[in-house]
Amino acid sequence: MLLEVKNLDAGYGFLHILRNVSLSVEKGEYVCLVGPNGAGKSTTLKTIAGLISPIGGEVCFDGETISGLAGYKVARRGIAYISEEMNLFSNMTVHENLLMGAYTVRDKQLEKNRLAFVYALFPQLEGRKNQLAGTMSGGERKMLGIGRALMCNPKMLLVDEPSFGLAPLLTEDVFDSLDTLIKEGGTILVVEQNVTKTLDVTDRGYVLEHGRIELEGPSAELARDPHVRKAFLGV
């Protein structure tokens, strides 16, 4: 297992949100975490990324325990987290944002290769190289967020709501780029509102409700599950 979350408990201050969450992601797998608003999906990703320290349980990555490590140390281990709000550096240009993504990359040649890779994946970004990130549209910001995360050549991506606030056509674009990454051997754990689409493209999925994992299994099976169909697909 590349990522293994065991019996994770987490929350904010006295607010206990996640209870006994366990999930795992194999290398090369495309896994999704779905659930209603406020279920704790974002909290799960933040805890894995080290931005929140867990109350209990353990997160292992690549065979080592990473729970309790500071966020920047988790990032240096090779987990790239893309938050819902992107957390771009709004007063830096697109290009500078991408270079910041390669902050931990000391090898200039590797940095160049990554830059070429990101610009090839999102040609729109190259055209807007010198634009300030703060002045970009929602879709462009999303691409920049993913691009910046890819700059450090991560072993795994944690993506929070890639389709949030995007028009259907742009959503397709973003999902296509994630698909490309998977085809090239990447590993992704994605959180999504758009359950139909997500279960359609991913390999496996977990359903999180009220901070607990209620269901898990291959995405195709989840899509057929009566509970999932009733709760998320409206049938």
């Binding site: 931005l51 920047y72 990032a75 550096f89 910041m100 902050y103 931990t104 450090c152």
Partner: peptide
């Protein structure tokens, strides 16, 4: 500009 973003890129 963004503390969380900075942590996310490994600063």
């Amino acid at each position: 500009q963004d503390e969380t973003g900075a942590q996310m890129v490994g600063i």
